[in-house]
Design a protein around this nucleic acid. Sequence first.
DNA 1: GTCGTGGTTGACTGACCAGTCAATCCGGAG
DNA 2: CTCCGGATTGACTGGTCAGTCAACCACGAC
Lengths: 213, 213
Amino acid sequence: MVAQPSKPAQPDKRRMILDAAVVAFATRGFHACRVSDIADEANVAYGLVYHYFRSKDEVLDTLFLERWNVLLEVIAEIDAQPLPAREKLHAIASFIIESYRHDPDLMKVIIVEVTRAANSFGRTHLGKIREAYALIADIVAKAQAEGSFRSAVTPAFAALAFYGAIEQVLTGWIFDALPQGESEFDEAKTFIVETICGGLDAVRPDRSSASSA
Amino acid sequence: MVAQPSKPAQPDKRRMILDAAVVAFATRGFHACRVSDIADEANVAYGLVYHYFRSKDEVLDTLFLERWNVLLEVIAEIDAQPLPAREKLHAIASFIIESYRHDPDLMKVIIVEVTRAANSFGRTHLGKIREAYALIADIVAKAQAEGSFRSAVTPAFAALAFYGAIEQVLTGWIFDALPQGESEFDEAKTFIVETICGGLDAVRPDRSSASSA
DNA sequence: GTCGTGGTTGACTGACCAGTCAATCCGGAG
DNA sequence: CTCCGGATTGACTGGTCAGTCAACCACGAC
């Protein structure tokens, strides 16, 4: 209600709306969340949301793209470093899990409302999402070429399994189906890489690989 | 319009509505799908949907529970057989993928609208979903106890990664982000087990397993 | 033929909400 | 002080549906 006399208070209403939307979407879900919930959460009038965004959808789009573009950049940076593939994957898993640790609501919204929503938003952003898969597949492909990963599985498939494992763990946290805390976060990074790479690593024992075809 | 003279036609309108709902939900998504879409698809009057179901939600619930209970039974049956853990997992992956092959729309609805929907339905059926994880985790735990799987990862986590990989592949098909066909279906079964078990199998080479704690 | 019951119909209602817009506020330029 | 334009406000509109309900129908019992 009362604006602080000396300060014009919040300089960036747009950012406030975006941040409020994260909370609102995470709490009630995109569909159940009304635009007025966002405005209330941001302590801003209803109409102001439409001053900064064309529609409720555009708010979600903005939130997703902001974050996903960071993810794509980070993956590319990690890949550019001279690391073994296993460590690159560990770094990627770390980044995603740290993102969740830092802002669970944002990650919840992105995963639940976009990444895992095959209708509506998932379809809209399919291209962006696939870029991430492609980047990961590329890391796997190079590792296979140089012999540090075995080639029993296609790079595209390995990328899917790797990213799928991460998302499943995050979903477990989001659902409260899995305990979460500092130790679980670190443990998960190791577990994911350990599970996936154990099946990818070139060092292969005697396993008769009797799979058909 | 015109009922066939000699036949009372459809004996089970309830079933027809359920089947129509699968198509309607798969095509437009649960939220975007109106109850009238279901009725139209079933060639039935709007009000009849409410004669058999209390609400639109109950239709989805019914669809999910019907199928998920079958899944739980099948997993239990597979586990009861005297097979190596790796083959049990292969059988589970096969069953789920065959379910998709047989009725992609139904699986799409279950995955997109329930399993991967952390708000609304996902929360409602969390218990049922977790039962599946628990059953799979149990298979892993037994395999670890008998030594055929190594213990680098907790059973609960392995179950998550395994199921996550399956769901990610199905999602890829649902999104049309992955080619699908007879050969891809069979290939996927092998790939999933190969990826996950490669990291679970007891046969472990020299890897220094420097994971903390 | 008449009656009754359960299945079936679809027009209608009530609630909800995204998006609009005319009015107001505020700070800076002149 | 006045004027201007962008920021801000929130009441209001239009359209959409989920769910209701009174009527209708078909068929078996008597």
